[in-house]
Design a protein around this nucleic acid. Structure first.
Lengths: 403, 403
DNA sequence: GGGTATTTGTAATGGCAAAAAACAAATTAG
DNA sequence: CTAATTTGTTTTTTGCCATTACAAATACCC
């Protein structure tokens, strides 16, 4: 995965060297500045446990690598020589996020502080079109965003692309399957015009979850991020790290058996959650035909008080709550986040979801507020894609080129 | 948790020091010897990437700490000076495992190589008795085992106790709730006669999972270990590490909603797995009264071909398969292990479990052999308790006293 | 059987990074 | 203006691994 490192696991640890020590301490300093705002060298020493001379040396290197900058000395108000504030460089390395959606392309660039500085979004239907064509357009959008970022003094140090599909582990950068786009084993590198700017693909639900984690001030360490586009997927963040499963298939929430003898699902089973809370099922139950943006349509009808729509949403919410009850009993997260289309329908989905959870999560305390809509909505995946590069740099600044 | 370290997570990493480097490299050497049998210093250097002089120095220290021993020089057959074989010391530090079951006490001591050297087991009913009394008897059993181990040249470097209940995180060593024993917020330290020999409590299902992981030659990195005693619990091993959830409640498989409108459960919900695959439910469905060992009774009846018993077990297996289908779709493990009582009933449970999984896990390949009975059966938890100390020593030998 | 090549383990040396100690610089308190 | 305090750097020390060199123990070859 991009940014947080794929699960390593195993007993076979690498030996520690002096370079490794240096590398880790660079990351420690970087992390302290990232987490606790502008700090002086002495503050960093106090926070991390490193000595002041060590911090000085590390900071020198981080400044040389354009990761940190020295701000002007702030009037501290306390006695003694004032420290010189260190902050993450907002005119240095940056992360590019791309997104290929069913109905849009998006790009954004964020600086090291995490602030989005460049936005691009194009509404266009991508389903069924040749992958090479779509990727070329995404590349053009990304190049535009990069050149606009260059004007702001930013240079892109990493590129990650959100796609609505399965992205297996491994260095290949392969999209194994993206049914809503009609993609099968597509390798972006094969179609990208600039071979030095090929982005690493990643599942959009995973990136949305990373974005959500960052968005929270004190992020939930362990949570489940549910995201509905055409299918229903969940991303698991466990102990602060994205968990992808043994084969990269974790989070297939849409095929949890909700009513064992329920309606058949194209997957071959019966009573899967998608048959109750999937986009097609909700539209069918509400008696609507899917013209235009189905989420907007549902929102309009629900707000107007249409009985069939409200009934369909309630049914979807109860089924979702049932599936999430299984997730909570298994995983014991401290939060559930509804993202994607569910975030926009939260007004109608949350009550039945919370009711089911209250009834079915009984062996541990479960406050209803633990399930909440995503704060980022549709921008989550792009932001997560861009942020994941920033996260990678902050957790290992040694990979930046020295000047 | 005992042995593998509780989830640390978070961005706040500790700074690396030279002592830390040394510490890690001691563990690297130790891990290489533990994983790949007897090795010479040169072999270790080749395997780990450390240089021979570094390995020499590290090995000296490990020998001084009684973690490694030098065996006699083996006739290698190759040209050149033969290396001196290093092996884990089987006359040095050891791990004590204790177990408090509903109907027994158990203790065992394993040496650094993982071999059990001392066994103790007492069949006795512990449910409902005063915790202090039971703990005193367990302490006596443990002391016996320790003194027998001393005769073999082993000294106990850590003590872990398996209990059928909830053990929250934190240093306290607290058993929050063990319904089958009738314990509520019991702190072993308060009742232990020898304050220097207080064991750290840990949930028995978790320890059983650790034991299972070690038992496998090439251990499954990510698997779910289902264990049925009176309740149904699951331990999750994700990426090689035990996962306990945000609050320590992960793996409450028994209360996954299997049939949403099913029979009411004491937990307050309806249709929980325990109402189909729990001990009480199976006995009721089979028309049996719980006299004596209920698992032995069920096995006997099933072997005799009793129709009601077979029907009850089939029903339990299908419900279990349904719940496990949810687990597989969510977690994407590469194996499911049936432990505890389920291991002994595997002949009758496996077919329906596998059938349900085959029908309901469709979005990823799922070979039926991926679900298998535990190889250790009832000894899993004690062994896991003892092994967890060994694991702790191997992954950080610096904590051993120097001589 | 003796010499040579090969491999192992140790000893001496060097380099690197952080810790410790000492010091210069910049501010506030009086 | 002086003393106290805090910051950041310079210098020295310490600890550990890498490199190099070397002694020891075996197999191979003649």
């Amino acid at each position: 995965m991009a940014g947080t490192g794929r699960a390593s696991g195993g007993v076979e640890a690498a030996p520690a060297s002096q370079q490794g020590m240096r590398r880790q301490n660079l990351a420690v300093v970087m992390g302290a500045v990232a987490a606790h705002g502008p700090l002086s060298r002495a503050d960093v020493a106090g926070q991390t446990g490193l000595t002041r001379p060590a911090v000085s040396s590390l900071v020198d290197e981080l400044i040389a690598r354009r990761a940190l900058t020295e701000a002007e000395t702030a009037p501290s108000g306390r006695v003694g020589r004032p420290g010189r504030a260190l902050a993450l460089n907002d005119r240095g390395p940056a992360g590019l996020g791309l997104e290929i959606g069913v109905a849009h392309l998006a790009a954004c660039v964020v600086d090291l502080r995490g602030a989005p500085r460049v936005w691009r979004r194009v509404e266009q239907a991508n389903a069924g079109r040749p992958a090479g064509q779509v990727l070329a357009e995404a590349a053009a959008l990304g190049a535009e965003a990069e050149s606009e970022a260059a004007v702001l003094g930013l240079w892109v140090a990493g590129r990650v692309m959100a796609v609505p599909g399965v992205v297996p582990d491994g260095p290949g950068g392969l999209v194994a399957n993206a049914p809503n786009l009609g993609w099968q084993t597509v390798r972006p590198a094969d179609h990208w015009p600039d071979p030095d700017a090929v982005p690493e693909p990643e599942n959009e639900a995973n990136l949305g979850a990373l974005a959500e984690q960052r968005q929270q001030g004190r992020p939930a360490e362990t949570f489940v991020h549910v995201s509905a586009e055409a299918g229903i997927g969940a991303a698991l963040v466990l102990g602060g790290r994205l968990f992808r499963g043994a084969r990269g298939f974790a989070g297939e929430l849409g095929h949890l058996p909700v009513h064992p003898e329920g309606p058949p699902c194209p997957c071959g089973a019966r009573g899967c959650l998608e048959q109750y809370a999937g986009e097609a099922a909700v539209l069918r139950e509400a008696g609507l035909a899917g013209a235009g943006d189905p989420v907007a349509l549902l929102t309009r009808r629900a707000r107007a008080g249409d009985a069939a729509t409200l009934r369909a949403l309630d049914r979807a919410g109860r089924a979702l709550g049932l599936a999430l009850a299984s997730a909570v009993n298994l995983i014991d997260p401290d939060a559930l986040v509804l993202g994607g289309a569910y975030a926009e329908l939260a007004d109608w989905l949350l009550p039945p979801v919370r009711a089911e959870l209250a009834a079915r999560v009984t062996v541990r305390p479960w406050p209803p507020e633990a399930v909440r809509p995503s704060a980022l909505g549709r921008r989550g995946p792009v932001l997560g894609a861009a942020w994941s590069t920033v996260h990678r740099i902050i957790s290992d600044p040694a990979q930046l080129p020295a000047f």
